[in-house]
Write a protein that binds this DNA or RNA. Structure first.
Length: 869
RNA sequence: GGAGGCUUAGCUCAGCAGGUUAGAGCGCAUGCUUCACACGCAUGAGGUCGCGCGUUCGAGUCGCGCAGUCUCCACCA
């Protein structure tokens, strides 16, 4: 047996334990036909990213589930991997290039630039994996994947082609969200709206026939260069006469039509809206209906084009100049303050420019149908289920998904354009000639796919799809997907419809949603705010187990949590507590095998019975994904039941060399380690290795199951009567400031003499009794005695001389009043006819019992009062 | 505009299907060098569970309304 240090030092233990697991090959899931599979695919972190607390929560939850299922005998696969993170990674490498070499990606050219990104990936791709290991993640590293590895790329290509062939991918001109800083299109989900103060400018557009004018209101005057019409509501009496006429666009001089369209809100502004089809999604639609001209006036860099003398100006500069000109020429009617929502890029927070552009889209409506069905009919469950509503709401209103990105880092779109006939060839193999005219004069679409396009396939591409692999056969569909609510739309939704479309089977059965980790003030953690906490530093200081336990407890599923380092300290203390409990058990151990003694004492039955209840509810909690509750219950059992009571109680027995006590201690400790292992894997494995055990490692031990044979409700209750008496004596002594050295002889009157006779030794030890005399009835003369009363017993201590009698009288009177109030309450309840007849018998019985106890208590208290004189 | 969350001890939060006396961590107070642990032990103070109405024998828990607060979605030129 190893000598354990007094304080647990996670740093000395964790890496060695992790290595032990790796050496044992325990993380690797085998396709065992005799076992049931349990699969989780990791939400792939950005390959060049660093672990933050959000990951830590996510990984901890997954690891807890995986370890639990592994111990339950499943072939538990946790499949790890990374995401290439198109925009994020490309921006980082470009930044690096700019700072260190003063180059842009265009200076290098596509191929060389991509080499650089791969270098970058290889340099940093390992860091996140190392960090996952530090946390204790039991991933199957032999199956590690990357969204741009060969297999995943093949899957992406297959999906693109198959959707294209089904007509579910199309290329079209639409208003897309354009980030002029990142110079790429963004999907709707990648745009964040921010309410910003702005203005509403009213502009005068004169009618061509000179009969008057219309006044339009706009928040973006610079887009007027691209106006190709003015719209009013067809029901608007004010403008009935001018529909069909034309007006002259100021500064530009273009003659543009006035059209009637339902889209216009009569109550807003002037009821006249300028139409800029190329720079506003609504105007684009109106423009299509009324055949308005499309003029693009802002380019990819946010500068004016097709705007005559304004060409080349930045869009916001142009706004100033145009407004000045409009005002000078008398077209500006008035300016109002106006707060409006501006779309910003989720990456760089530049204002998004809506502009008409050729992009690739996934047609969502047909795909959404199945994705809605499987959630509505419960094939896929969200936990907590309120998130199903969020999901369905989005899916019901989903718009086509813009999947092309004007980046280089990612899966290049497998489409080739024929320079001769214009035909588009979409192909699984790299094309050399046009499939229509055979021309070799073709060029490939330079754009890449949205990063989420490949992550959408993650649950099956990682298992080998599109090949029919054994892994896919065995492990798909996966069981649980664990993620934060912030990426339900980005990722979860897209995996669901992808799984249904390509696998014809849901990608997972349960989506377990957790909240965000915030700082102590409830703010989102971010680099710019400087309030981020590095999980690696926390682990360094408190240990991975403490961090894990902190993150898994003290919050409810789906809710955000605040991160307090103080809580890590508390959890570190807990680990230390367990460490010392184990150390103590080992110090006293002479047996070499974990087996219960033939004969169990009362307290043995009590702790075993408590253990069984714990096991039962922990398993239940696990099945309902209530991990925090399970963890808290284990914590309470270890600290309160096991350490504060059972260890204390068995001390005298150990001193006397009672082997049975050792056996029970070892038995309970072993079950504790098993129960706690998924949450605190390192310390439990380390202790397990130091105590007598038969298995190879704790990680592959069997998780405890409720055992009826070790459940002793009666003994449990009896022992708790004794505990109550002990607590009552302690409490009284503390109130009276009695030093521990005073060990009075206690006379204990009870109707359960057998129980308390057995409890004598505990009283002596835990309640500082000099001796205990159990009697059936209170002594005749109790004058000069302090009385302590519990539900089952009256205890008398000859210590009147140590007590302030007045204070004692006061205290007892107070207690008596409370007892009487309780009696009144109970009596009222029981006098209620409908309660007695309608409430379950068990409840009524409990109430009766309570009344009886309260009456007994009151009686005893009254007597004590009398004795005090 | 639509949807959802939160409101429980000084602070941060639990409270799983309505049923003894509403819990934890931290903090606070008092006393302990008790031979596993001061990262500890014991004891204690502190709560009209946001407000109102309702359902029920019984509501922190279920329903409705209100107030405060946060988030998401849509978006108004």
């Amino acid at each position: 047996m190893r000598e354990l240090p007094k304080q647990y030092d996670p740093k000395k233990v964790e890496s060695a334990v992790y290595q032990q697991w790796l050496d044992g090959g325990y993380f690797h899931a085998r396709r065992d036909p005799d076992k049931k599979p349990f699969t989780i695919v990791i939400p792939p972190p950005n390959v060049t990213g660093q672990l933050h607390l959000g990951h830590a929560v996510d990984e901890t939850i997954q690891d807890v589930l995986i370890r639990y299922k592994r111990m339950k005998g499943y072939s538990a696969l946790w499949l790890p991997g990374c995401d290439h993170a198109g925009i994020a990674t490309q921006i980082k490498v470009e930044e690096d290039l700019r700072v260190n070499e003063g180059l842009t990606r265009f200076d290098l050219g596509r191929e060389k630039f991509l080499d650089r990104v791969w270098d970058w990936k290889n340099k940093y791709g390992d860091r996140i994996v190392q960090q996952l290991r530090t946390l204790g993640s039991s991933c199957d590293w032999e199956r590690q994947r990357f969204t741009m590895d060969e297999g995943c790329s093949k899957a992406v290509r297959e999906v693109f082609c198959s959707l294209y062939e089904k007509g579910l991918i199309y290329k079209g001109k639409r208003i897309i969200n354009w980030c002029p800083h990142c110079t790429t299109a963004l999907s709707d989900a990648e745009v964040e709206y921010e309410g910003k103060p702005g203005h509403l400018w009213h502009l005068r557009y004169p009618l061509s026939d000179g009969s008057g004018e219309v006044v339009v209101a706009t928040t973006r005057p610079e887009t007027m260069l691209g106006d190709t019409g003015v719209a009013v509501n067809p029901a608007d009496e004010r403008y009935k006469d001018i529909v069909g006429k034309t007006c002259i666009l100021p500064l530009v001089g273009r003659e543009i039509p006035i059209v009637a369209d339902e889209y216009v809100d009569m109550a807003f502004g002037t009821g006249c809206v300028k139409m800029t089809p190329c720079h506003d999604p609504n105007d684009f639609e109106v423009g299509l209906r009324h055949d308005l001209e499309q003029i693009l006036v802002i380019d990819d860099n946010g500068r004016i084009i097709n705007g005559g003398k304004y060409d080349g100006l930045d869009r916001y500069e142009a706004r100033k100049v145009i407004l000045r000109d409009l005002e000078e020429q008398g077209y500006l009617v008035k300016v109002e303050e106006h707060i409006h929502n501006v779309g910003t890029c989720y990456r760089c927070h530049s204002d998004v420019e809506p502009l008409a552009s050729d992009q690739w889209f996934v047609k969502m409506e047909p795909l959404a149908k199945e994705a809605i069905r499987v959630v509505e009919d419960g094939t896929i469950k969200f936990v907590p289920d309120r998130f199903a509503k969020t999901y369905l709401n989005w899916m019901h209103n989903v718009r086509d998904w813009c999947i092309s990105r004007q980046l280089w880092w990612g899966h290049q779109i497998p489409a080739w354009y024929c320079d001769d006939c214009g035909h588009v060839t979409v192909s699984r193999e790299d094309a050399c000639r046009c499939e229509k005219c055979g021309s070799e004069n073709i060029h490939r679409d330079p754009d890449v796919l949205d990063t989420w396009f490949s992550s959408a396939l993650w649950p099956f591409s990682t298992l080998g799809w599109p090949d029919k692999t054994e892994d896919l056969e065995y492990f798909y569909p996966t069981d649980v997907l664990v993620t934060g609510y912030d990426i339900i739309f980005f990722w979860v939704a897209r995996m669901i419809f992808s799984g249904m479309e390509h696998m014809k089977k849901e990608p997972f059965k349960t989506v377990l949603i957790h909240g965000l980790v915030r700082d102590p003030h409830g703010k989102k953690m971010s680099k710019s705010a400087g309030n981020g906490v590095d999980p690696i530093e926390v682990i360094d200081q408190y240990g991975a187990d403490a961090l894990r336990f902190n993150l898994i407890t003290g919050n409810s599923p789906g809710n955000d949590m605040r991160f307090y380092v103080e809580r890590c300290e508390a959890m570190r203390n807990f680990a230390n507590k367990l460490w010392n409990a184990a150390r103590y058990v080992m110090m006293n151990l002479t047996v070499e095998k974990n087996a219960l003694p033939a004969e169990l004492k009362l307290e043995d039955k009590w702790i075993l019975s408590k253990l069984q209840s714990l096991i039962g509810s922990v398993n239940e909690n696990f099945d309902k994904y209530e991990l925090g509750l399970a963890a808290t219950k284990i914590y309470d059992f270890i600290w309160d039941s096991f350490c504060d009571w059972f260890i204390e109680i068995t001390k005298p027995r150990l001193r006397e060399g009672d082997v049975g006590a050792q056996q029970v201690l070892l038995y309970v400790l072993t079950d504790i380690l098993r129960l706690l292992h998924p949450f605190m894997p390192f310390i439990t494995e380390e202790i397990y290795g130091a105590i007598p055990h038969e298995g190879e490692a704790l990680i592959v031990e069997i998780y405890p199951e409720f055992d009826e044979a070790l459940s002793f409700p009666k003994e449990e209750a009896d022992f708790e009567s004794i505990m109550e008496a002990v607590k009552a004596v302690r409490s009284r002594r503390a109130e009276m400031n009695v030093p521990p050295s005073k060990r009075p002889h206690i006379t204990l009157a009870t109707e359960k003499p057998a129980v308390f006779e057995a409890g004598k030794v505990y009283m002596a030890n835990l309640a500082y009794a000099g001796g205990v005399n159990v009697v059936p009835q209170a002594p005749a003369d109790t004058a000069g005695m302090v009385t302590v009363v519990t539900g089952d017993a009256k205890l008398f201590m000859p210590m009147a001389e140590l007590v302030d009698l007045d204070k004692e009288r006061e205290r007892i009177t107070k207690e008596l009043e409370k007892a009487q109030k309780d009696i009144a309450n109970q009596e009222r309840k029981l006098a209620n006819e409908s309660f007695v007849s309608r409430a379950p018998e068990r409840v009524v019985a409990a109430e009766r019992d309570k009344l009886a106890k309260a009456q007994a208590l009151a009686e005893n208290l009254a007597e004590s009062l009398k004795n005090l004189g």
